[in-house]
Simulated scan of single mutants.
Amino acid sequence: MYNNEPIFLQPVLQERIWGGQKLRTEYDYEIPSDKTGEAWVISAHPHGPSKIMNGALAGQTLADAWYEHKEIFNKAEDEQGEYPLLVKILDAADDLSVQVHPDDEFARTVENVPYGKTECWYVLSAEEGAELVLGHNAKTQEEFDQMIDRGEWDKLLRGVKVKAGDFVYVPSGTIHAIGKGIVILETQQSSDITYRLYDYDRTDVAGNKRELHLERSTQVTTIPHQDAPVEQMEKVNGDLIEKKLVEEQYFSVYHWQLNGQATCEMTADFLQVSVVEGRAALMIDGKSFDLKKGTHLILPHSVTTYSLEGNAEFIVSHE
């Protein structure tokens, strides 16, 4: 049985054509280059599994813990399936490609992977006037196909301006793109399937355009676009304001604002916790753990009660 310590995770840094330097300047991560776009901060995905930094499992990956220590996550030893969620921080120094992700059924039957990709974004920072793509304006499949064939991207794509603190829910089938100057924390299903619909005709250092996936994109896009309803609620627990950002079949995601002290009870199988601002102490069974901006951890199921003290902002999630 794993003890009651939090599991601290080391981010996996990923270079991207659109990446920048904010993962170093804002979060103090050791980035591999000045085009580092993603930090996979809570990940058991084979393309970038997080490494455990402390305790009896130090040096192992989150995937190792998931398969070998099911009690951490309140799962039966014989329970099948892969770790369900993935948390990233993305630094968009340039526009990301316009893309869309499949649902579970399409991912399993066509790509032979366990999960499609529904995701959500909490905007950590955004430059003045920053904009992302969310959805499209086509009313029918025919209109959708015609706009693509004619290259009428400005007409097809729906732009949305965002600022720090905004929340965006992106179900599978939703066309989307994070715009230049935006840093987000993304909570998603543990999937790395992306169908690229449009990439602004840009080229890499060798002069090559990135691959597009027009047929698959068209197959999985929801037409017409539908804004997903999100019902948000707040509750106050001591000096902690807990705001539920979304609760749906794949994940529940919360924003916590701590200004003082609070005692909390574990109600989920396990909690994913990311510190996005400030500093705090986490107390469990008389032991104190330092939390600061850029720290990411899992609270195991064995933790029944814990306390927080300090001034900090968190994004918290669970299945």
Rank of each mutant, 00 (worst) to 15 (best):
E26W: 13
T118W: 06
E309P: 07
T221I: 03
K70W: 00
V123W: 01
G159W: 09
I17Y: 12
A93L: 05
D34K: 14
S317R: 00
E309T: 14
K243I: 04
L308Y: 00
V160F: 08
E186W: 00
A39P: 09
L299I: 15
G116N: 09
G81C: 12
D95W: 07
E127A: 14
E15M: 14
R196T: 07
P49L: 07
E127V: 10
I175Q: 02
V41L: 05
F270Y: 15
I148Q: 02
Y250W: 10
S191Y: 00
N311Y: 02
N54G: 12
K209W: 01
E247M: 07
R108L: 10
G151C: 12
D78Y: 01
A126V: 08
S190I: 05
N4Q: 15
L245D: 02
Q10A: 12
T218G: 05
V87D: 10
E277G: 01
T218V: 05
Q99V: 04
E247G: 12
L271R: 03
D94N: 11
G55R: 07
S252N: 04
S125V: 05
D239K: 04
A76W: 01
D192C: 08
Y27G: 06
E127S: 11
W153F: 13
A130D: 00
Q188I: 02
L245I: 13
P32N: 12
K22Q: 13
Y27P: 10
I298E: 00
D239A: 11
V303F: 01
M283R: 13
Q188D: 06
Q261D: 10
D149T: 12
W40D: 04
L271I: 10
Y195R: 06
E152W: 08
N54S: 14
R216P: 00
E211G: 07
K235I: 11
D239P: 04
L197K: 00
T25R: 11
Y200H: 07
A177N: 09
N259S: 13
Y254G: 01
Q10D: 12
P84N: 11
N137V: 06
S191E: 08
G20C: 09
D201F: 10
G116T: 01
T218I: 08
E231Y: 15
L23W: 03
E234Y: 02
P114R: 06
L134M: 14
E111A: 08
D199M: 09
M147Q: 13
G173L: 10
A228G: 11
I17E: 15
L245P: 04
P224S: 02
H45Y: 05
L245S: 03
A228Y: 15
D104S: 06
G278Q: 05
D199F: 05
Q80L: 15
W18T: 02
G81W: 03
A177G: 10
Q14M: 12
T118V: 09
E319W: 06
S43R: 02
M266V: 03
K51G: 05
N208M: 11
G37H: 01
L271Q: 07
Y67E: 13
S191N: 08
S217P: 03
L157R: 01
I178F: 03
A107Y: 01
Y195M: 11
V41K: 00
K75A: 13
D201P: 06
E277H: 06
Y169P: 07
Y254F: 15
L85W: 00
D149C: 05
H255R: 13
L156E: 03
A262M: 09
E152D: 15
Q219H: 03
I223R: 01
N311L: 05
N54D: 15
M233F: 14
D103K: 09
E111K: 14
Y67A: 07
V253D: 00
L85P: 00
Y2M: 12
G48V: 07
